[in-house]
C-alpha cells in the first residue's frame, strides 16, 4: 500500500501532505510529476493544495488537462482512492470527477484560519474513524472556496449523502455565521457516487500534529490508512 502526492508546477502543499503521510501516518509515499501518466502503483492519490500552473485562469482549469490527471481519472473510475485538498478539490471539480465548482469567496479575499466542519457522512473511506455529526477543527486557506452547483445536483448530493463536510459552529450548528466563504449549503467537502473520491477545502495536513495547533485533520489520513490496510 502506497500513497502518491501529485506535484503540479505551483503546488505548494505537496511537501506538507507528503510529510504527514510519511512522518505522522508512517506510510510509504511517493511524489508523482504532473507530466507523468504513471501512478507508480499507488493505492491512494493526493491532489494537494497550491496554485497549479499559477491558476491565473480559473482555478484548476489548466491542471485538468495534465497527463497525470488523465491517469488519475482512470484510476478513480476504477475505484482508486483520490483525496483532493483545496486546490486539489478545485482540480477534481474541473476534471469532472466531482460535480459543481468553487467560486471566489463572498468576502472577495483570501481567508486563512481554522474553521469547524461537521462530519455529515462517516461512512466513507476518508471519514470512517469519525462519528456522524462530529465537529472537527481544520484550517482553511483559500480565495476560491465558495462551492456552487445547480439545484438538481445539490438534491442528488443530499440524497446520496455525498456531502461529507459542512461548515458549522463549534457546537455543530450549520449557521450562516459559520460559513467562511459563502459556500452553498455550507458545503466544505463532497465525494463522488463511488465514495472513493473526496474533495475538501480545509487542509487536514495542517492540523495533524499537536504542535501545529490541532490533530483533527489527521483523522482523514487515519481513515484512509485503515481502509488501505483492509484492502
Amino acid at each position: 500500500m502506497k500513497f502518491g502526492v501529485i506535484i503540479f508546477p505551483g503546488s505548494n502543499c505537496d511537501h506538507d501532505a507528503y510529510w504527514t503521510i510519511q512522518q505522522v501516518a508512517k506510510q510509504p509515499v511517493t511524489f508523482l510529476w504532473h507530466e507523468s501518466h504513471d501512478l507508480e502503483n499507488c493505492d491512494a492519490i493526493i491532489v494537494p493544495g497550491g496554485f497549479a500552473y499559477g491558476d491565473y485562469l480559473r482555478t484548476g482549469a489548466i491542471a485538468r488537462f495534465s497527463p497525470v490527471m488523465e491517469a488519475v481519472g482512470k484510476f478513480a473510475v476504477g475505484g482508486g482512492l483520490v483525496l483532493g485538498i483545496c486546490n486539489g478539490f478545485q482540480i477534481l471539480c474541473e476534471s469532472g470527477l466531482l460535480p459543481g465548482a468553487l467560486m471566489r469567496n463572498v468576502g472577495l479575499k483570501y481567508v486563512c484560519k481554522p474553521v469547524h466542519v461537521r462530519v455529515e457522512n462517516a461512512d466513507t473511506p476518508f471519514t470512517n474513524v469519525c462519528r456522524e455529526g462530529e465537529v472537527l477543527t481544520i484550517p482553511i486557506g483559500h480565495m476560491e472556496g465558495n462551492y456552487f452547483c445547480d439545484e438538481a445536483t445539490l438534491h442528488e448530493l443530499r440524497r446520496e449523502q455525498r456531502i461529507v463536510f459542512r461548515y458549522a459552529t463549534s457546537s455543530g450548528d450549520i449557521a450562516p455565521d459559520a460559513n467562511p466563504n459563502g459556500s452553498l449549503d455550507n458545503i466544505a467537502g463532497i465525494c463522488n457516487q463511488g465514495r472513493n473520491v473526496l474533495g475538501m477545502m480545509p487542509h487536514p495536513e495542517r492540523y495533524s500534529e499537536p504542535e501545529l495547533g490541532g490533530t483533527d485533520g489527521f483523522r482523514i489520513f487515519q481513515s484512509l490508512v485503515g481502509v488501505m490496510v483492509e484492502r
Partner: peptide, 10 residues
C-alpha cells in the same frame, strides 16, 4: 493576517 497564508509548510 487572515488574508495571509500563515500555515503552509506546516
Amino acid at each position: 493576517w487572515q488574508q495571509y497564508d500563515h500555515m503552509v509548510q506546516t
